[in-house]
Each structure stands twice: as structure tokens, then as C-alpha cells.
């Protein structure tokens, strides 16, 4: 037996994203952000998107291009402090922003990926993040209900991949990528390096291939992937 090949073209892979789609995008700052897939999403231009990402990147990088092009209707995130445009658009009502506690966003996505309905947590129970959320007592302790999150499409960035879509991430570029790779109806991975089947040791696979629908191999890395000069 041989595992199937999922390598596709950039254009074809991203073409499944239509107007109104929800899109999870991996990355925490630069590491792990699938800049090439985002650029193609900008080029193809679907609108009214719900973007689910830890942060909004910085000016002229990643999610910022989607904000400039006016494709984002809603942003589900944890912190957008490094992107003044995202804050300005939120304040002007041009995009809707939903803030989550960072680990709770991760758990909501993990729950979505695990086929669960949501999670119970006391995180933020004293804050305005708990407003309008259902409260439940379990064994005398108060929790709020955080619903599971799934998306139509997840865009993730891997360091290494084999043709089946087994993925390995590098250093702190892992972050939300393996969680989002479980939580979308269609999962598209870009990878810096394609290795033959079997070259990724089975013990070293971070995201198992069955979660991945399409693999885009990066022939070169744009400047966006580089070390940020501050």
C-alpha cells in the first residue's frame, strides 16, 4: 500500500475559499504564518471573510494585506496590538473584532477539531469577555461555556511535509497551526520543504496526514518570512 499524494497548486488550493467563508490562519506573529497562502487569498479576492487568527500580524504583512483589500468582515483573535490598521478599522466599525483569551482560543479550536461542542472554563469569568456567555456550575464551581470553533478552511504553514500531508513545524512556528489543522472542513498546508514519504519519522510528525486536504510546496520564501528588523 502507498499513501495518497495531496500536492496541489497554490491557485487551485486557495480557490475553494469563497465569499463569506470562515478561514483559520496559523501563526503567532511571523513564525508559522502562511504568508504565501494569504497572498493568494488576496489575489483571488473573496470578500466578507471571517478570519480566525491569534493576531493581525504587522503593517504590510500577512493579515494586514487582507485588511487593506477590504476582504475581512470579522476577526476572531486574541491581540492586535502590533497592527495599528486593525485597531483603527475596529474602532471605525469597518471590521468586527471578537477577542478571546489566548489559551481559550486555542482550546475552542482544539475542541472544534476534536468533535466537541465546547469547553467549560473559569478564565475571564470576572471580565467583560464573559459577558453574554452561559454560566454552568459543576461540583460547586462556576464556569462559563466557550463554544467550539470550526472553520470552512484552515491555512497552515509547515516547515517540512511529505506528499501525504504529514507535517512538522519549526520552533515557535508551531503555535496554532496543529490545532487549526484539525478544525476546518478543508485544510490547506504550505510547506517550506517537501520530503519523500518515510523521511519524516513517524514519531516526529506533528500533524498527521489524514487532517490535511491539500499541500502547497513553497519554492521560495518571500521577505515576509524573514527576521523582522525593528
Amino acid at each position: 500500500m502507498k499513501l495518497p499524494d495531496k500536492i496541489g497548486t497554490l491557485e487551485e488550493a486557495v480557490s475553494c475559499i469563497g465569499d463569506g467563508a470562515s478561514v483559520m490562519i496559523g501563526g503567532f506573529g511571523v513564525p508559522g504564518t502562511p504568508f504565501t497562502l494569504i497572498r493568494e487569498l488576496v489575489r483571488q479576492g473573496p470578500r466578507d471573510l471571517t478570519i480566525i487568527k491569534n493576531d493581525a500580524n504587522e503593517a504590510d504583512m500577512g493579515v494586514d494585506h487582507l485588511l487593506v483589500s477590504g476582504q475581512v468582515a470579522r476577526l476572531v483573535t486574541t491581540h492586535i496590538g502590533l497592527n495599528p490598521r486593525a485597531i483603527a478599522m475596529m474602532n471605525a466599525g469597518e471590521i468586527e473584532v471578537e477577542f478571546n483569551a489566548q489559551g481559550i482560543l486555542a482550546e475552542r479550536i482544539r475542541a472544534g477539531g476534536a468533535g466537541l461542542g465546547g469547553i467549560l472554563t473559569d478564565i475571564g469569568i470576572d471580565t467583560e469577555l464573559a459577558n453574554d456567555k452561559q454560566r454552568i456550575n459543576v461540583d460547586g464551581k462556576a464556569f462559563i461555556v466557550e463554544s467550539a470553533l470550526r472553520a470552512d478552511v484552515a491555512l497552515v504553514h509547515a516547515d517540512r511535509a511529505d506528499p501525504f500531508g504529514n507535517l512538522a513545524f519549526a520552533a515557535t512556528a508551531r503555535n496554532f497551526n496543529p490545532l487549526m489543522a484539525m478544525a476546518a472542513a478543508r485544510v490547506i498546508a504550505e510547506a517550506e520543504q517537501l520530503v519523500p514519504l518515510g523521511d519524516l519519522n513517524a514519531d516526529d510528525v506533528h500533524t498527521p496526514g489524514p487532517f490535511v486536504d491539500e499541500l502547497v510546496v513553497l519554492n521560495e520564501l518571500s521577505e515576509e518570512y524573514a527576521v523582522v528588523q525593528r
Binding site: 503567532f28 506573529g29 511571523v30 513564525p31 508559522g32 491569534n54 502590533l82 489566548q102 489559551g103 481559550i104 482560543l105 486555542a106 482550546e107 479550536i109 482544539r110 516547515d159 519549526a170 520552533a171 515557535t172 512556528a173 508551531r174 503555535n175 496554532f176 497551526n177 496543529p178 490545532l179 506533528h206 518570512y225 524573514a226 527576521v227 523582522v228 525593528r230
Partner: peptide, 27 residues
């Protein structure tokens, strides 16, 4: 290392025994 930052965006490094993990494990 372009893939190795802390939560504030500073470029950091590993030391012998460091471990990487995803955001769910982190929290």
C-alpha cells in the same frame, strides 16, 4: 532564527533541554 521568538516578538534562543509545543499545551 526567524522561527524563534517570545510572545513579545523578541528573537530568543533555546538552551539545553528547551521544549517547543503548541498554543493549547502552552496554556
Amino acid at each position: 532564527d526567524r522561527n524563534l521568538i517570545d510572545a513579545g516578538g523578541a528573537y530568543v534562543s533555546t538552551i539545553p533541554g528547551s521544549a517547543f509545543f503548541d498554543s493549547a499545551v502552552s496554556f
